[in-house]
């Protein structure tokens, strides 16, 4: 358990340091073509880390689902389930920070921009995934059905991104954002922090589930 305290402490330190830099230290960016960007760009330091962690979660769910069907080891089912749950939680923040950005930058909270669309649809896919899990009582049947949905859902997410690509996008390209080196470092630090928090949450959720099962008299 000790390493959880350490890693969480480290992650919070990274995040706090990053947030301090992002909000208080970095100067405004003057952008003649988009004057509202001046202070607004600071949103990136929160939006990108939670988004990266959320999609990491869905990707873990995909691989854990495939591994479950291959091995039928319930461990992978647990990983898939908890990763999806925490992923949905993170993507909720992605959507909120995204909307907070979109209103001043593009005029409306919601624009059906390709990335927004993909995040929203994936959010729905994994909420559906969690709903399916809730609705099946028998654990093997639940594991099988949700693993299959985990594979379908992720693939559909890829197609959602692909399908929206043929329409023009407002969103800045992910890897094209020009940041000062120090800002880039800070962003990297915050992404690392968010991912560590994410992994710890998944781990704790898994432990919690095992404890619950133990109390319920299983094993």
């Amino acid at each position: 358990m000790l390493w959880i305290y350490f890693s969480l402490a480290a992650a919070f330190a990274m995040f706090a340091y990053g947030a301090y830099k992002a909000l208080l230290v970095f100067p405004p960016i003057y952008s003649p073509e988009n004057p509202v960007m001046e202070e607004l760009y600071r949103n990136v330091f929160f939006h990108v880390p939670v988004n990266a962690s959320g999609f990491l979660g869905f990707t873990i769910t995909l691989f854990a689902s495939i591994l479950y069907l291959k091995t039928r080891d319930m461990k992978y089912d647990l990983i898939a389930a908890k990763s999806a749950k925490v992923g949905v939680f993170f993507i909720t923040f992605t959507l909120l920070t995204g909307m907070a950005w979109a209103k001043p930058a593009w005029g409306t909270y919601w624009n059906w921009d390709p990335r927004e669309t993909t995040a929203l649809i994936m959010w729905f896919v994994y909420l559906g995934y969690l709903a399916l899990r809730e609705a099946i009582a028998e654990e093997r049947a639940r594991a099988r059905a949700s693993a299959i949905l985990g594979i379908f859902g992720y693939t559909s997410g890829i197609f959602t991104l692909l399908s929206t690509r043929i329409f023009p996008s407002l969103h800045p390209p992910t890897f094209g954002l020009r940041l000062e080196p120090e800002m880039g470092m800070t962003l990297g630090l915050m992404i690392t922090g968010a991912v560590i928090v994410f992994l710890n949450l998944v781990y704790l959720e898994m432990r919690l589930e095992r404890v619950k099962r133990g109390l319920a008299g299983g094993r």
């Binding site: 729905f124 559906g128 709903a131 399916l132 949905l149 379908f152 859902g153 559909s156 959602t160």
Partner: peptide
């Protein structure tokens, strides 16, 4: 349940 899991997967089509 079926519409809830089906709709998002069908979204791109």
């Amino acid at each position: 349940l079926l519409p809830v899991i089906l709709l998002p997967v069908l979204f791109p089509v």
